[in-house]
Amino acid sequence: MFPMIPAISRGRKALVALCLALPWLIGAAAASPVVPVVIGVLYPDIPAPYREVFTQIIAGVRATPGIMVRRYPLEQDADPVALRRWVRTHGCRAVIALGRRGVAAAHDLDDPPVPVIAGAVLITDPPADPGLVGISLAPDPARLFARLRELAPAVRRVAVVYNPIHSAWLIGRAREAARAQGLQLTALGVGDLRAAVDQYRRIFEESDPGRLAVWLPQDPTTVDARLVLPLVLQAAWDRDVAVFSSNPAYVARGVLFALYPNNMAMGTSLGRMALRAARRRRPRAPRLRLLRDLSIAVNLRTADHLGLVFTGRQVQGFDLVFPVSR
């Protein structure tokens, strides 16, 4: 009906050619000669947005070379008999159990016994099951401190307020990690929020601007977003203290940086552990490790306030940057 314009004609042809090439590219990628090991992934069937976390972890497991993934979404009252049958039917050589629901369901996989790798769960010390192998959702303090040294190189001392009941294990690891980074770790044990507030007050009163950083661990008994966080942030702002965390939401509020799970990479790490278990090799020590597959969120407004300057390449490497509009 309408005359064709030469320029558009060329453009359309190019578009059509690219579209036609797409299935060929997909086909080429799918043709892999590797004979895969079947790994079952049990994960809680929970609604969005949390479900996306498991979707990404599973995508990471799939990306592990040599693995074929079978997925098993778990409802609240999963039937252990059906699950055992499912593992047998699909010939799963190992199972990755995601979330608390996944780990609980995997307890029943004893007939036949299948190696189980736990993931996407906050495991505290001591783990409920000493035989548990896997990756905790808690970031490895070594990674946190390494990032701290990179972003705020003048910092020499890190203070943390923690609950010994929940985080003694973590603090033990943190002491080693701090030493390795040349940092002095001041760990103050408390039992409740009121005691935590007192300790934070003391930390800031004795702070050395520019050389002290405060670490907020994933522990609701020592860090509360409603009461404690505003106090910490205001004091840190007034006294030029860097605050870092494992909670990206805190970065939006004013914490300098936080590390949080990189789901795809975590999935691939779980996949590698599962593959190793499936081949009946001993897991590398420690059996249950802290998370090293991490993304970073940085608050550039807070960095400006602290006088920290990042290169363009550093900023490009940040996964989330706050504030969204400056």
Binding site: P49, V53, R100, L122, N247, Y260, N263, L320
Partner: peptide, 17 residues
């Protein structure tokens, strides 16, 4: 609850994922 602690709540799960 675990995921909310690791990602900073439902709102941030969406941002972080």
């Amino acid at each position: 609850s675990d995921l909310a602690r690791a990602y900073g709540g439902a709102e941030f799960v969406t941002v972080a994922t």
